[in-house]
Write a protein that binds this DNA or RNA. Structure first.
Length: 589
RNA sequence: GCCGGUGUAGCUCAGGGGUAGAGCAGCUGUUUCGUAAACAGCUGGUCGUGAGUUCGAGUCUCACCGCCGGCUCCA
């Protein structure tokens, strides 16, 4: 039930409230620091922020003070008014505000918006609540550094973030949800479930424990099955290449800062950040007929990128990672169908994983690019048509393409609503040109193939990270490192447990026996914490009737089930890669 | 890389100039139990690293490293 039915707040109104709260925040900051320089303060998805140039760094205590001052301003409930004024007039008003002066010059036209409430005035395009009393419920959350105009060459300002919602209830539920999201953080789950860890001895390079490795291998097994049906050939290429290769590919000029370069004897070599140049060498190693095309080369080997220290983030942003990478070499005529197949494959993969909420972006040519602009235009249009034909909605991200071609990006959000790019499909005419790749056409002439770079899950590390957050660690049966734990009620049931376990091992289901001296309740609790999909409880009754008592990690008690029946069910669950656990097998019979 | 925060046992954290602590985990016993924590004992730390201040430094200063939140950059 909506408690405020008289005041249904839509997104637009909410944005106005958030933007107004930013003004109230700036007012409070200026009261506290009269010499403060203020920059910009927009509304964002869950609230607002405002950037300031201040004489000292803010502390958490400052936020409490600022919030109190803001609440006072809200209580005074003064009207927020605005008007258009001439740029000259505005420059007088903001004479001591360098950031505002710069913004005035940036704005097109002769006039700018001038908004004020009480004594506070701001340069602003508008969109406000009527008064400070109508900004909703908010809380200042944190301070962070942010470059002026988002450019790292500019000075760094202090950005104060606030959460804001129409009602106190919504604000509180947002703040609670944020706290709960921490429990789904893949870095935390990685520790709790013994999947992986990171050690300062190699920053940004995860150690995969047996459990994490199991997930990784199950994913690649799944992809390899699809590679058979979709006609891919898996290859393995070197890790380390003479810098000549990176100069040919263009990486040396465009990706230099992100590469690990090492001197070896008299030459410089580079550890591969991508597989494409190696695949081009492999393609160019032999002559190809048009009859062989498309050639689809897949590779899972490790890539290394020298990510700047401040951006590393668990599995989702690592220096060492691998991709479900492949490069497709085809004729221009085949391009359209190849891309359509890629979307079929994408849909197949993501539907098995239960991820239906991919956001697609088409990224267009940026400042750094190789090749000619006309080819880019054609390629960009082809991608937009293809993604539409595949039934996906998409957005355009201007100037976000890789340097060698436009791309489709598939994004998903993590537990804290941060968006990450997973899969990508990229078109490339430039690299075949640079590597002088050819195929013999049906008229005997040499032609240049088109190249598609594609990774559908993207980085496997990043994917595993995001997927852990999506599932809160309750992985589907087939991806669970431990699928089944068998719990004896007393020691005399242990032999029977091991007997059951050996059946499962033979069927390639990962079952363990908890033969410790704890009580059954404690063992169940531990299994629950480890999010093991199934628990079999075994006591006298089960031994006598040749059954096991089945319980799921969701707390469902399925009762006693014949050993052969539940085994068949679980084998099927694994083979079909079913996402949900079977809550009650009796319904099936 | 930049701004801010932070670093004490495997994990979560207390201790803020004067003998390094708790819970959980681990180990050893005891307990043999029917669906989310049995009991007892024991082990475990160059307090991120290095300098400095001090009679004395987890504690104060500085530098470096890692991590966390942003910014920038990207799968």
């Amino acid at each position: 039930m909506n408690t405020n039915k008289d005041t249904q707040i839509d997104e637009e109104q909410l944005a106005k409230m958030r933007h107004s709260a930013a003004h109230v925040l700036a007012e409070a900051v200026l009261e506290m620091f009269p010499e403060a320089k203020y920059a910009i303060g927009p509304s964002i998805e869950t609230g607002f922020y405002y950037d300031f140039d201040l004489p000292r760094s803010l502390t958490p205590a400052d936020l409490i003070i600022l919030q109190k001052r803001m609440k006072k301003s809200v209580k005074r409930n003064v009207p927020i008014t605005g008007e258009q004024i001439s740029k000259n007039e505005a420059k007088k008003i903001f004479a001591k505000q360098p950031y505002k002066l710069e913004l005035i010059d940036d704005i097109e036209g002769d006039t700018v918006g001038h908004f004020m409430h009480a004594k506070f005035e701001d340069l602003c395009r508008g969109g406000h609540a009527a008064s400070t009393g109508q900004v909703g419920s908010f809380q200042l959350t944190h301070v962070a550094g942010a470059y002026w105009k988002g450019d790292e060459k500019n000075p760094m300002l202090q950005r104060i973030y606030g959460a804001l919602f129409a009602t106190q209830e919504e604000l509180e539920s947002y703040l609670t949800a944020r706290e709960e999201a921490a429990a789904r953080d893949h870095r935390r789950l990685g520790k709790e479930l013994d999947l992986f860890f990171l050690d300062p001895i190699s920053p940004g390079s995860p150690f995969f424990l047996p459990g994490g490795t199991y997930i990784y291998n199950e994913l690649t097994d799944f992809l390899r099955e699809l590679y058979v049906t979709y006609g891919y050939d898996e290859v393995i290429t070197p890790q380390l290449f003479d810098s000549k290769l990176w100069k040919t590919s263009g990486h040396y000029d465009n990706f230099h800062g992100d590469m690990f370069l090492v001197p070896i004897d008299e030459q410089e070599m580079g550890i591969k950040p991508m597989n494409c140049p190696g695949h081009c060498v492999l393609y160019g190693h032999t002559r190809h007929s048009y009859r062989e095309l498309p050639i689809r080369l897949a590779e899972f080997t490790r890539l290394h990128r020298n990510e700047r220290s401040g951006v590393l983030h668990g599995l989702t942003r690592a220096r060492s990672f691998s991709q479900d990478d492949a490069h497709i070499y085809c004729t221009p005529e085949q391009l359209h169908d190849e891309i359509a197949k890629l979307f079929d494959m994408t849909k197949e993969i993501y539907s098995v994983l239960g991820l239906e909420n991919l956001t697609m972006y088409v990224a267009t040519r940026g400042k750094n690019f190789i090749g000619n602009p006309k080819d880019w235009d054609v390629a960009e249009q082809l991608l937009m048509d293809s993604v539409k034909n595949a039934g996906f909605k998409y957005e355009v991200s201007e100037a976000e393409a890789a340097f060698y071609g436009p791309k489709i990006e598939m994004h998903l959000k993590d537990a804290l609503n941060r968006s990450w790019q997973l899969g990508t499909i990229q078109l490339d005419q430039a690299m075949p040109e640079r590597f002088n790749l050819r195929y013999i056409s049906n008229d005997g002439s040499e032609q240049q193939p088109t190249m598609i770079h594609r990774a559908l899950l993207g980085s496997l590390e990043r994917f595993i990270g995001i997927y852990l957050e999506f599932t809160a660690g309750k992985l589907p049966f087939w991806l669970s490192p431990t699928q089944l734990i068998i719990i004896p009620i007393t020691d005399k049931h242990i032999d029977y447990c091991y007997e059951v376990q050996s059946e499962y091992k033979q069927s390639m289901i990962n079952a363990i026996v908890d033969d410790g001296s704890e009580r059954m309740g404690a063992k169940i609790r531990n299994a629950q914490i480890k999010k093991i999909p199934y628990m079999f409880i075994v006591g006298d009754q089960e031994m006598e009737s040749n059954t096991v008592a089945v319980r799921t990690r969701n707390g469902d008690d399925l009762g006693q089930i014949k050993r052969e029946d539940i085994l068949a069910t679980l084998i099927q669950l694994k083979q079909t890669r079913t996402i949900e656990l079977i809550a009650n097998t009796s319904e099936k019979q």
